[in-house]
Design a protein around this nucleic acid. Structure first.
Lengths: 141, 141
DNA sequence: AATCAAATGAGAATGACTCTCATCATAAGT
DNA sequence: ACTTATGATGAGAGTCATTCTCATTTGATT
C-alpha cells in the first residue's frame, strides 16, 4: 500500500497524493513531467489540479521518494526512487532516456569535491547524444 | 578586437554583440545569467533590449564562443569559452561556482555511452554541495 | 461525530524566455 | 563615400512552466 510510504515520510495520506504515487509506480514510463502526470490522471477521469501535482512532486522529492531531473532543453522530469542511484543518457533526437551507474565516476566526484573543500550533497550527470544512427526523430514522454 | 571573433564565426559585427562579448571578457564573474548581463549593460548606461541579449547569447553559443550551463534551481548561466572543457561544482547556499576537470570521468563517459550504443555529443556534470561550513548565505551573480 | 490544521482546485500571478514588428545599422556594391 | 537590401535591434506582447492566493474541502485527532 502506498499509504504507508506516505506516512513513513510524514506526509498526510490524501487522495491526490496516492493517485500520483501509484501512477508513478504503475507507469511503464519511468521519467515523467508534471504536465504528463496531470494529463494522465485527468484523462483517466480523476479531478486533480495541476498545482496539486506540482506540490505533491515537490514534497515527494523533499522526502526522497522521487528524484527530479532537469535535462537540457528545459524539460524537467520526475522519477520514482527505486533501486540505487544512477545517472542518465538522453537522446537529443528522440528524447529516449537510458540509465547507467559508474562506480569510478561516483568515486571521482567524491574525491574532487573533497579536494575543493566542498561538502557534496548532490550531483547531476547527464550525457547527451544520438541513440542510434536511424533514431526516430520525435518522442513524447 | 572582439570584432574579429564575431567575423570568424560568421556573425555580423554590431554594437550590442560587441558590448555583450566584451562584458563577458572583462567581467571578473565568469558565469552570468542573461538578466545579469542585461542589467550590467543597462546600468552602465547602454541602451540594449533584453531580447537582444538572449538572441546574442544563443548565437554565441551556437557559434561555440560561449557555453550555456543549466544549474539546478532554474538558473541558466553563460560562460566564455576560454580554456579547455571543464565541469562545475556549485554551492547550494551561496551560489559560488568552482570549476574542475577530471580526465578519468571524461574517459568513463566515453566508454559508457559507447557501451550503450550512443554517439556522445555533449554532457553536463554538476556537483552540488556546501563550499564551507560557514558559507555566506546569499550571493548575486 | 466534532474540530481544526493541513491540503486541495481554480485561476491569477510570476519569471524566464521568445516572438512580432516597425525602425535602424551594417556590409556589399557602386 | 553613397545607396541599398538584408539582417539586427528595442519594445512590448505573448508563451510556457511553475508558484501563489484563497475560498473550500478533507483527513487525523479527539
Amino acid at each position: 500500500m502506498e499509504s504507508q510510504e506516505l506516512r513513513n515520510v510524514g506526509l498526510k495520506v490524501t487522495t491526490p497524493r496516492l493517485k500520483i504515487l501509484s501512477l508513478l509506480e504503475k507507469s511503464t514510463e519511468k521519467h515523467m513531467t508534471a504536465e504528463t502526470i496531470y494529463r494522465l490522471l485527468s484523462t483517466g477521469g480523476e479531478v486533480i489540479g495541476l498545482a496539486t501535482v506540482y506540490r505533491a512532486l515537490a514534497q515527494f522529492e523533499a522526502a526522497g521518494l522521487i528524484t527530479r531531473h532537469q535535462f537540457e532543453g528545459g524539460q524537467t522530469v520526475f522519477e520514482l526512487e527505486r533501486g540505487p542511484h544512477h545517472d542518465h543518457i538522453v537522446c537529443v533526437r528522440c528524447g529516449r532516456v537510458e540509465e547507467f551507474y559508474d562506480k569510478i565516476i561516483e568515486e571521482r566526484q567524491r574525491v574532487i569535491s573533497e579536494k575543493l573543500g566542498f561538502t557534496l550533497s548532490d550531483h547531476a550527470l547527464t550525457l547527451y547524444g544520438e541513440c542510434t544512427p536511424n533514431c526516430p526523430k520525435s518522442h513524447s514522454a
